[in-house]
């Protein structure tokens, strides 16, 4: 059985559009999860479909030097989710609502555990701190932590150098560390990275 890589399939889809179906089959689950986590499962399904329709319509823009279409699709998904949030006026609330869902789930799972309260408090602190971070940094961190993209894939998805990804992750991680460690807030490193409340 011949297995074609993403680039070959996208190139092939220029003359045989049905070849694009394999791109859908390979990546729909990951793109759906990306969208569903940010806007909910029902809306996420529609947006995930939009990602592939847009990708097909613009497949001539795909960089054929890349063998894996995943970062490209995540980049499209980011833009489509941003647009959807912006158009519905929910941009600032979206991450907060998503994160609160995560906290609730965590609370339910560990409700009987003695340390759960502390853990939940800690998570809440991270959630609150996340909402205060620059959107670009948060997007970068979530692509890494939630969607498990590599640094190189994130760079491709966001169309920034890998070094920028690294610095964004280091910066936001440092800030979140500070949010978790009250004592550290007094340290100069934390003072330097704290941001004013938005």
């Amino acid at each position: 059985m011949m297995t074609l890589n993403d680039t070959t399939l996208i190139e092939l889809s220029q003359v045989d559009p049905e070849a694009f179906g394999e791109i859908f089959d390979r990546h729909f689950t990951a793109i759906y999860r990306f969208c569903a986590r940010r806007v909910g499962p029902a809306r996420g399904e529609d947006l995930a479909g939009d990602v592939f329709r847009w990708a097909f319509e613009n497949r001539d823009r795909y960089d054929l030097s890349r063998s894996d279409a995943r970062p490209w699709l995540f980049g499209i998904a980011l833009n489509i989710v941003r647009d959807a949030m912006r158009s519905s006026g929910r941009e600032s609330a979206a991450f907060g609502r998503s994160i609160n869902q995560g906290i609730d789930l965590f609370g339910e799972v560990d409700a009987q555990v003695a340390s759960a309260l502390d853990a939940k408090t800690e998570l809440a602190a991270v959630a609150v701190a996340l909402e205060r971070q620059p959107t670009a940094d948060v997007e970068t961190l979530l692509l890494y932590a939630w969607d498990e993209l590599s640094y190189a894939e994130i760079a491709e998805a966001l169309d920034v150098p890998v070094g920028t990804v690294r610095s964004r992750l280091n910066r936001i991680r440092e800030r979140l560390h500070c949010a978790l460690d009250e004592a550290a807030v007094e340290r100069s490193t934390c003072s330097a990275v704290r941001l004013p409340r938005r």
């Binding site: 759906y32 869902q101 965590f106 998570l123 991270v126 939630w146």
Partner: peptide, 12 residues
């Protein structure tokens, strides 16, 4: 911690 904050997203 950030991973734990991820809303549940089952496969489609």
């Amino acid at each position: 911690r950030v991973r734990q904050l991820a809303p549940p997203a089952e496969d489609p």
